Simulated scan of single mutants.
Amino acid sequence: MESEDLQKLLTFAMPYGKYQGRVIADLPGYYLNWFARVGFPNGELGRLLALMQEIDHNGLKSLLDPLRK
């Protein structure tokens, strides 16, 4: 994980699918878990989705709250 990755979770939008346009930090947990089951996409998108899934799975979404302000 890079230091700027947490900020990217709040600014990087899903480029396709049901949640197109929604920032990764706001994706529902079941959608992140689906990616964990079927496989994350390649590249930065997949890396950020995997990071967000870990944060969500471990109940750490509140860590992003100070960055939202």
Rank of each mutant, 00 (worst) to 15 (best):
M1E: 11
E4C: 06
Q7V: 12
K8E: 13
K8M: 12
L9N: 08
L10N: 10
L10C: 11
L10S: 01
F12G: 03
A13Q: 15
A13N: 08
A13W: 01
M14I: 14
M14P: 15
Y16D: 10
G17T: 15
G17F: 08
K18A: 08
Y19V: 15
Q20W: 05
Q20D: 02
G21L: 07
G21Q: 00
V23Y: 00
V23K: 08
A25L: 01
Y30G: 00
Y30K: 03
Y31C: 05
L32D: 07
L32I: 14
L32M: 08
W34D: 02
F35M: 02
F35G: 01
A36S: 13
R37D: 02
R37N: 04
R37S: 03
V38E: 08
F40C: 02
F40A: 06
F40D: 05
P41R: 05
P41A: 05
N42I: 09
N42F: 03
N42S: 10
G43A: 08
L45E: 00
L45W: 04
L48V: 13
L49F: 10
L49T: 15
L49W: 09
A50E: 11
A50H: 09
L51N: 05
L51F: 04
L51W: 12
L51C: 00
M52D: 07
M52A: 04
E54T: 14
I55K: 06
I55W: 08
N58C: 05
N58R: 13
G59T: 15
G59V: 14
K61R: 15
K61P: 01
K61A: 03
S62E: 01
L63P: 03
L64V: 11
L64C: 00
D65Q: 13
P66V: 11
L67T: 13
L67P: 11
L67N: 07
R68V: 13
R68E: 00
